[in-house]
Design a binder for these strands. Sequence first.
DNA 1: TTGCAAAGTTAGGTGTTGCTAACTATATTA
DNA 2: TAATATAGTTAGCAACACCTAACTTTGCAA
Lengths: 152, 152
Amino acid sequence: MNAAKQKQLSASMEDYLEVIYHLSGSGMVARSKDIAEGLGVSRASVTGALRVLSEKALINYKPYGVVTLTDRGRVEAYKIVRRHRVLESFFIDILGLDAVIAKESACRAEHALGQQVIGRLRDYIEFITAREDGDVALEFKQFYHKKQLPDA
Amino acid sequence: MNAAKQKQLSASMEDYLEVIYHLSGSGMVARSKDIAEGLGVSRASVTGALRVLSEKALINYKPYGVVTLTDRGRVEAYKIVRRHRVLESFFIDILGLDAVIAKESACRAEHALGQQVIGRLRDYIEFITAREDGDVALEFKQFYHKKQLPDA
DNA sequence: TTGCAAAGTTAGGTGTTGCTAACTATATTA
DNA sequence: TAATATAGTTAGCAACACCTAACTTTGCAA
């Protein structure tokens, strides 16, 4: 029951972990500078975050060293990425929102919604897109397009 | 262009404003103690928040005085309440989630989603519930209930 | 190989949001 | 109206998440 390990991550730390996941996923090693750019924070802030994530045993990190995810870190990061993906998919595929808005909104909402909501949302997307009896997403697109038109 | 007025509210301040809205809505005057209880924070924290909201001209407040919303405050508060309601309705009426989970999730997500997302979500709820051609919400309920059953 | 630019860290500071403890003001009620 | 309980405030502190400026380390190129 190591104290550093058990408390759940802040939204901020989730963001760091998510970026590290994406950077190390694409072949690259996660470099401090890229993390900073990815999140729009200073390099100094990244150093602080890396220390925290390292204390929580989510990343392997030593000053001036390379950053990699631990097994636990990868699991945690993937949970966040999955939440993000479900939300983004919902915003785009069900609500028909613009891709940029969808991504930004997913980034902010992914920290606020628990597994119960995300899981149900995933089911909902599956249900609507797999549904044989009429294309609900398309119908909705027509619905809100009509709504937005001027009355004339 | 008063500096205090233009910056947008933090999630915290939105929460305070929302509680004040609800308290003053139900006939009562918003009392510091009730705000504290409503948000689960100390009375001292409430005092600090009231000062901030007062500086932003969202509430009328003087030490030891009564708290009321200004016109601008009521408008801002109502925006937040509306976001909350749309989310809660979506979670309950579309996703079929438990009322408690729905309320908690709406409380957290209401600060993360902008008017574009909320507006589209409102349209979606309207579209699905008003739709003549089959009850999608009910079908989905059956869908995820079946999903959750053990395989045997 | 040395010498410089880029990357990373440290030190110190700010703003936000919360806390507790101790104080003051207000309201109740005996 | 005076005592006392309740409500509200102040002061002081802590955690978090960020910043800039100055420093150190690293790696590449001449």
